[in-house]
């Protein structure tokens, strides 16, 4: 077993684990945070697939912008739950 394969297997396991935790998270807050972690792990997976272009885009868009959008939506939710804007 080469070091590369060991790393790939570890990364694959972590990806699946983080996706599972994201989907099974008890609160939306935790789901969003775990999704950002998942996005960063995806960027690593793209790098392992020799796709640095996608890795760059995934880190900036998949984890960064999508995470910001989801967190902003969470803020709106919290304000509404708190009664009034």
């Amino acid at each position: 077993m080469t070091v590369g394969l060991v790393f790939d297997l570890l990364l694959a396991g972590t990806l699946l684990w983080s996706a599972w935790r994201t989907l099974a998270a008890p609160t939306p807050e935790r789901a969003v945070i775990l999704f950002i972690v998942f996005g960063l792990l995806m960027a690593l997976a793209w790098a392992r697939l020799s796709a640095p272009d996608i890795a760059l885009a995934e880190a900036a868009i998949g984890a960064g912008l999508t995470g910001a959008l989801l967190l902003d939506a969470l803020g709106t939710l919290r304000r509404r739950a708190g009664g009034g804007p």
């Binding site: 989907l23 998270a25 939306p28 969003v32 999704f35 998942f38 999508t66 989801l70 939506a73």
Partner: peptide
């Protein structure tokens, strides 16, 4: 809906 949107992204 928020969680479904996250699931859709996964």
């Amino acid at each position: 809906p928020l969680r479904r949107i996250v699931a859709f992204n996964v």
